[in-house]
Simulated assay, not measured.
Amino acid sequence: MRHFNPAPFIAVAAVVAFAAGPAAAHARLVGATPAPNATVVATRTLSLTFSERTVPAFSGFDVVNAAGEKVAIETSVSEDGKTLTGTLARALAAGEYRVDWRIASSDGHRMTGSYTFMVR
């Protein structure tokens, strides 16, 4: 009678699960200026830094005021592809703002998110 040995199958499953862990990770926002929930003085520059390189053609962000209107912003991507910087035509007026970001990481995953900050 032959006995079934599950050890090779368990080993293969463990290797696949371990190897898939890093591949399943997605880019995440790791830093922002102004920071989420911060209160700042008038600013003309915003930056968002992600944990992975982004694809510039599919990455960007909008700044939205309390009335729901987008503020005109010109964005650029850092040389390492991880930081998006936005420059405003003029400093933001006092009030609450929301940053809506969208990125595509180099592995093809698309991510979105948002946060708010206040200008005094």
Rank of each mutant, 00 (worst) to 15 (best):
F9R: 08
F9P: 06
I10T: 10
I10G: 09
I10C: 10
A11Y: 01
A11G: 13
V12G: 00
A13S: 09
A13R: 06
A13V: 00
V16K: 00
A17W: 03
A17T: 08
A19C: 08
A19N: 04
G21F: 13
P22V: 00
A24R: 10
A25W: 08
H26K: 10
A27I: 01
A27T: 04
A27G: 13
R28C: 04
L29T: 01
L29R: 10
L29D: 05
V30Y: 06
G31S: 15
A32Y: 02
A32I: 04
A32D: 01
A32K: 00
A32N: 04
T33M: 14
A35C: 13
A35T: 13
P36N: 06
T39H: 03
V40W: 11
V40C: 14
V41I: 15
A42C: 01
T43K: 15
R44W: 09
R44E: 15
L46Y: 08
L46V: 09
S47N: 13
S47T: 14
S47M: 06
L48Y: 04
L48E: 03
T49H: 11
S51E: 08
S51D: 07
R53M: 07
T54C: 03
V55D: 11
V55R: 09
A57E: 12
F58S: 13
F58R: 10
F58W: 07
F58K: 15
F61A: 01
F61E: 08
D62W: 13
V64I: 13
G68L: 08
E69T: 09
E69H: 14
K70A: 09
V71Q: 12
V71Y: 05
A72L: 12
E74V: 14
E74Q: 15
T75R: 12
D80T: 03
D80Q: 06
G81E: 01
G81S: 02
K82E: 03
K82F: 01
T83F: 02
T83N: 12
T83E: 12
T85A: 04
G86P: 11
G86Q: 04
T87R: 15
T87D: 12
T87N: 15
L88T: 11
L88D: 12
A89V: 10
A89F: 05
R90L: 15
A91W: 00
L92C: 05
L92Q: 06
L92W: 02
A93I: 00
E96K: 15
Y97C: 03
Y97T: 07
Y97E: 03
R98V: 13
V99Y: 00
D100I: 05
R102A: 12
R102Q: 11
I103F: 01
I103G: 06
I103E: 00
